[in-house]
Design a protein around this nucleic acid. Structure first.
Lengths: 172, 172
DNA sequence: AAAGATTGAATAATCAATCTTT
DNA sequence: AAAGATTGATTATTCAATCTTT
């Protein structure tokens, strides 16, 4: 017999369920858009964007892995494929010869540059449909705190400047 | 040369990035917990939970697919595996013989019942660490609207009772 | 011996094609 | 012919093991 006291409809299960559904829905819709406009998967776009934002448009393999959803081996394969189509190039790492950089090629940079505007348009259309600008900010702030609580590692890996809130002085 | 006017750091990219990171971080942490306490993957748990919440503890394959992140073929394989370990059973569908039900077995029901409490504890510990109760409600409401905007199909598939906010009368 | 990165083997997810029933 | 579900082939992801450098 089903245990009557197991809270199958606890609100926290709903919260997590909605996070999963929101993520899945948005990912699918963005993937479709990126595929159609720029022939990129959402994962490829994510990798290229992270590189484009990094100094020298390159990043150590392990740092790049920490900034994406991929394991280090998963990232190795992804970069293999990106390299095979000429969007990314591996570069040797002079100061630590164990290491390796993934660097954007000119073609890779070009592809992100062209992919970003229609991508932003799509994101904007979803967010504008659902929220006021203030609510987008509110959502962003809540998601950042959730991310920090659930995944302290990624919190450090990305977000070079967490929150320009002022007031917190010396970096310790 | 890098196009100077491409907004690589547009706030909307950050919002989406945080959604992805929050989802990945929470999923990983919940997966670890479920694996350790109940030997279930987060996907299996999700499937079993959806079934446990459904009338008769069963659901048509396609409805179940619509409520999860899986495609119909992905769900077929997942149910194959769940059936192989005895947590789910397929049942014929009398009123439409093309169809098929996935139904919880007694053992399956037992597994969810035992998995839910420690799972809720883990979710609670993350949410309580990051938010006040009012903020959890705020986040939930924002996520629901985002989900509805990004994925109208899932919005209908799950959530039998969207929001007990009152005021909106006839279902039309 | 530990860190950075890669590889082999195993697992899981998808698309397109197929089969049955409506 | 369309809907529900499954299967074959392909692709992607992970874990554990390996190799090189520190």
């Amino acid at each position: 017999m089903p245990a009557a006291d197991v809270p199958l409809d606890h609100p926290h299960l709903t919260t997590v369920g909605l996070l999963v559904e929101a993520h899945a829905g948005l990912s699918q819709s963005l993937e479709r858009q990126l595929r159609a406009s720029s022939d990129l998967s959402i994962h490829w776009f994510e990798v290229l964007l992270r590189l484009a934002r990094s100094p020298g448009e390159r990043l150590r393999m392990s740092d790049l892995a920490a900034q994406t959803t991929l394991s280090t081996s998963g990232l190795t394969r992804a970069v293999d494929r990106l390299e095979a189509v000429g969007l990314v190039r591996r570069e040797a790492c002079p100061e630590d010869r164990r290491g390796s950089y993934a660097a954007l090629t000119e073609e890779g940079r070009d592809r992100v540059d062209r992919a970003v505007p229609p991508h932003l348009e799509q994101i904007g259309s979803v967010l504008d449909q659902a929220f006021s600008p203030a609510e987008v900010d509110e959502l962003t702030s809540l998601l950042r705190r959730l991310r920090d609580a659930a995944n302290p590692r990624a919190a450090r890996a990305s977000d070079p400047d967490p929150q320009p809130l002022g007031g917190l002085d010396q970096p310790a």
